[in-house]
Design a protein around this nucleic acid. Sequence first.
RNA 1: GAGGUUGUAGCUCAGUUGGUUAGAGCGUCGGAUUGUGGUUCCGAAGGUCGCGGGUUCGAGACCCGUCUUCCUCCCCA
Length: 458
Amino acid sequence: MAQKPAIPKGTRDFLPAEVAKRTYLFDTIKKVFRRYGFAPIETPSFELSTTLLGKYGEEGDRLIFRILNSGEKMRKADLEALAQDNLPRFANSLAEKALRYDLTVPFARFVVQHQNELNFPFKRYQIQPVWRADRPQHGRYQEFYQCDVDVVGSDSLLYEVELIQIFDEVLTNLQLPGFVIQINNRKILSGIAEVCGVAERIVDLTVAIDKLDKIGEQGVLDELAQKGFTETTLQQIKPLFDFKGSNTDKINLLRNYLANSEVGQKGLDELTYVLDTVAQLGLQRGQLDFEITLARGLNYYTGAIFEVKALDVKMGSICGGGRYDDLTALLGLKNLSGVGISFGADRIYDVLTELNLFPAELELSLDVLFVNFGEATLAQNLHLLKKTRAQGLAAEIYPSAAKLQKQLKYANDRKVRYVVMMGEEELLQDQLTLKEMESGLQQKLSQAELLTKFEQLS
RNA sequence: GAGGUUGUAGCUCAGUUGGUUAGAGCGUCGGAUUGUGGUUCCGAAGGUCGCGGGUUCGAGACCCGUCUUCCUCCCCA
């Protein structure tokens, strides 16, 4: 009966010390977002299933958490579909709502719905949890926060540049020592598919190429062969494996390789512009790499694709993003291009923890503790406590006149900076004892002197 | 969704081929004569051995199921 309570797999509780770190992380991110002119919005944690389904590809649909219909709505269950073993249709009839899978699709819905209330280009940021019915692993959770910035209503490549600057600024501000911002362009990938004569199979092609790092050239070829790509196609793909060197080297090789692909050339133009502009402006700690094999990213990307990886840690991508030209069209609003990126807060948290990069002062939760010496001195302590709080310091008084030893141990555990001791001894001399916990030094002060000192702190 | 792996006090882990009241370190709490923490000394509390079945005279150890952990795929932040 009295079983130990538990939480679902892939979810976590956050203790005060963890929340302090997460707040620091979110605040650092928000500060940069605001500086680039983005304003926050929020959307519901669950959407209508029809809004989400079909936007993330087949795999994506599988990972969407569905919310079971309740009450009378359960009667809507499509038993016929079940009888026919059509599980997807049956599932849809059981759940007309679902937890959001990311923040981009709900944002697209938001834009379509509020198009007449928004000014374009519309720049928004959004920091909220998302849910995925994934199998948990290191750095993969079923509930995690994404921090998204997106612009819709402009196809200007200046926004690609701006978003790269945001990657660089946020991660630099978080003191991350090294990270690579990988960039590619969906149009280049389309060009490759076109040149190889498999334009309609771009997804299978790019998904396989994306694994080059992991499974090697032969692995990629094997996977493609297995998926039914012909030997001729494989031969046309092979040269790509040798496209190495600097960003410009790779672009030059592709210029030639994609000579007969209009869309491919367009992709290279876009990429070149972005790379050149960023190079002129310079980055702080980030390194911007054109990665031909970068193909991931959801199906709805149409232009630039981004992915960021932290150096020296075993962790998947910590950020992602890209341009999507047709996402709002799926929801009924055409000709509205958008581009955006997402910071994976929980993964970044894990990286910062592993590299020990959180500022130490985040642990300080209480500035001042007043020792409780009992009824006789309580009123005067409470008044001084009130004045201390009025100065903006976090202060409290111990709830009972426990032994001094215990009260100081509490102060120590709470990592309190100062302890004020104002008992009968001190009050007789119209003084108090201020103890600085870290050094252990104590001094006698008047109440006025104490408040003057505190004023300088806050 | 596929395959593998893990689960013993709050935490990190011991626990011999199944055999008496399941242990340690750390942490927590209490104490070491009057108002001084982080170091030391003494003491105490705390475990349905993830959960549910089964095998056995007997199971923390073996079997099955289930949940969870971590890993490899798939996919992704």
